[in-house]
């Protein structure tokens, strides 16, 4: 599931500098390889390819426009650098007097338009595909709250899910370490799998099945939040008074990490999102367990209500 871990001792400045150079050198060749789809890696340079056809398409579009920019850059900067070297007064260059060249001007208006059309075409397709949530098999409602997330499972494989929902907050070890003067180094916060998950770990991850089109119904309870898990290939704002629907998918089981992306107040940096993708059978079992537990909870709660006033449910 999780990838082998590179031990990350707090590196010395020198080792970091060396790594920076190596990373830069390897950058253009191994751009995708550096990015782990589950969580960010040190010296990461590029977007993650994510973990589904959708996120791969997004990544392809990203790379396409990136290379287009490189291409145009080579032409424009190339011409410019040539001019800067060649047409210097110190080299005895004499100024020409021309001020127009209609052909040239038409060319450099038309070619960019064509390039843009070439980019707009796949972008349009992908956008339409991305916004089509039809045929989802699991529906989860995601609510941003200052400063945590609430997940409610609404339906799975066409069947309504019975009261499965929970809050998901920043994990306790990160929460301790993040306090000013805590004396705990962020580097010392490590998950069971050895991932450096400082500020990227939660109390209750969102559990989802792999190979399943998941519909997210995203909203917020107080202010705007942003639901962003890079591996999904998108982010969606969580807006009070609105349901924003989007869909995503995971092909490989794993723990995918993201963060709230919209400034939402003082603890905006401290409301991570963790999605645990598990094989479908495992998910089925998990869901049943959760349903049972919530049924038990409901019974005990009724008992409480009849006895003493219930404590507010989180």
């Amino acid at each position: 599931m999780t990838q082998p871990v590179i031990p990350l001792a707090q590196p010395t400045a020198f080792r970091r500098a060396v790594r920076a150079l190596l990373a830069l050198a390897g950058a253009l060749l191994a751009v995708p390889a550096l990015a782990n789809p589950e969580h960010p890696s040190p010296w990461q340079l590029n977007l993650t390819r994510g973990d589904s056809g959708l996120s791969h398409d997004v990544w392809d579009l990203h790379m396409a426009v990136f290379y287009v920019c490189i291409g145009i850059g080579v032409v424009v900067y190339g011409a410019m650098v040539y001019a800067l070297i060649r047409f210097r007064k110190s080299k005895g260059a004499k100024p020409a007097g021309f001020t127009h060249n209609t052909t040239l001007e038409v060319v450099w208006t038309v070619i960019p338009v064509l390039i843009l059309i070439g980019l707009a075409y796949p972008a349009t397709h992908l956008l339409v595909y991305e916004n089509n949530t039809n045929g989802s098999q699991l529906t989860v409602k995601v609510t941003g709250i200052q400063w945590m997330w609430r997940y409610d499972y609404l339906s799975y494989l066409g069947q309504p899910v019975n009261r499965v929902g929970f809050l998901s907050k920043l994990a306790e070890d990160s929460n301790v370490a993040r306090q000013a003067d805590s004396g705990v180094s962020p580097w010392s916060v490590v998950s069971a799998h050895g991932v450096h998950d400082y500020l990227l770990d939660v109390t209750h991850p969102l559990v989802v099945p792999t190979h399943t089109k998941i519909q997210f119904l995203i909203t917020a309870a107080d202010v705007i939040h942003g639901f962003w898990v890079p591996a999904l290939g998108w982010q969606a704002d969580a807006i009070p008074g609105q349901i924003h629907d989007a869909w995503g998918k995971f092909d490989t089981p794993g723990t995918y990490r993201g963060q709230c992306a919209q400034l939402c107040g003082q603890d905006h940096a401290y409301m991570p999102i963790v999605i645990k993708a598990v094989p479908r059978a495992e998910f089925q079992q998990w869901l049943v367990d959760q349903e049972n537990r919530s049924r038990m909870d409901a019974i005990s709660r009724t008992a409480e209500v009849t006895g003493a006033p219930a404590a507010p449910q989180g």
Binding site: K141, G241, Q242, I243
Partner: peptide
């Protein structure tokens, strides 16, 4: 939209 027209269907349904 709040009343559920077009783009607002889900918002109306759930909220």
């Amino acid at each position: 939209w709040l009343a559920g027209e077009g783009h607002g269907a889900l918002t109306n349904l759930y909220l």
